[in-house]
């Protein structure tokens, strides 16, 4: 029997309709209706007062993404040039934190960063501090970087193992110094990995609520927290929550569109 590729997609199609398309339509429906089910634009027009939360979310997520990129890029290159068996071990080490529960990992940072936490106790031995680390925006960014760094490393590494050494040698042969080798050959060739990595770190960072709640305290509320409040919190209002989700989705899409323009000269597509 011939393998029909269209039939292969059928299970996912059912899944997608039930769990992605339908909820999406529901989000749109709730965003444009009030509690009685009448059409309204109030949910969306009322979002202006939360602009600062949106900006903070985007800003912190962007900072975390940039830090991830700068940490992951050189590391991924180093990984891709190791011997194959060493690559496997190193990749496992990179992924190791991901095997641990996400909440647990973030709790661990709380005990480290607290006013009476391990770091401050350590500094206390030398009579320094205590520093105010928990419940700051810095702590939130740290939590994002810590949790999502592997999602930056993996796509970068995947694309870099495919870049042949001879291409880098060719660049050097034609007169490139170290900086030019990186900017004129390595970065353009790894662009699909860069955009995928940015997407995979930025999107979960911008919509996170656990990290900001645990490490950011009440004062650094992100859009994720705000949405959660509408569904599970005291201000129970899923129409407003849906409107927020919708706007967040559009903003994220715009950001991704922007990233992909960077990649547009590149013919090879990324993972996403």
């Amino acid at each position: 029997m011939k393998l029909n590729s269209k039939i292969c997609a059928a299970p996912y199609l059912v899944w997608m309709t039930a769990f992605i398309v339908a909820p999406l339509l529901m989000v749109i429906y709730f965003a444009f209706t009030d509690k009685e089910g009448n059409f309204t634009l109030e949910n969306l027009s009322g979002l202006g007062q939360y602009a600062s939360v949106f900006v903070r979310s985007l800003l912190l997520a962007a900072i975390a993404t940039v830090i991830c990129l700068f940490l992951a890029y050189p590391l991924s290159f180093m990984l891709s040039r190791l011997r194959v068996n060493k690559q496997r071990i190193m990749l496992m080490l990179v992924m190791l934190p991901m095997w641990m529960n996400f909440l647990l990992r973030t709790y661990a940072w709380m005990t480290l960063l607290e006013r009476n936490g391990l770091i401050n106790s350590f500094f206390g031995l030398f009579g320094i501090g205590p520093f105010n680390m928990i419940n700051t925006q810095g702590a939130v960014v740290l939590g994002m970087v810590y949790n999502y760094l592997p999602y930056m490393i993996l796509p970068l590494y995947t694309i870099m193992v495919k870049i042949d050494d001879s291409l880098i040698e060719a660049a050097e042969d034609l007169g490139s110094n170290l900086f030019q080798k990186v900017t004129k050959v390595l970065i353009p060739l790894s662009m699909p990995g860069i955009t995928t990595g940015i997407t995979m770190v930025f999107v979960p960072s911008v919509s996170t609520f656990i990290i900001s709640r645990m490490l950011g305290g009440g004062s650094n509320m992100l859009i994720g927290d705000l949405i959660e409040l509408q569904f599970l919190g005291n201000s129970y209002n899923y129409n407003l929550g849906s409107a927020m989700s919708l706007v967040l989705m559009v903003v994220v899409l715009l950001c991704m569109g922007l990233t992909n323009i960077l990649d547009s000269e590149n013919k090879e597509g990324g993972v996403i």
């Binding site: 042949d164 001879s166 291409l167 040698e169 060719a170 660049a171 050959v185 353009p188 060739l189 662009m191 000269e265 590149n266 013919k267 090879e268």
Partner: peptide, 8 residues
């Protein structure tokens, strides 16, 4: 040996 032309 394998040309090493820049694909981009």
């Amino acid at each position: 040996q394998k040309y090493a032309l820049f694909p981009h």
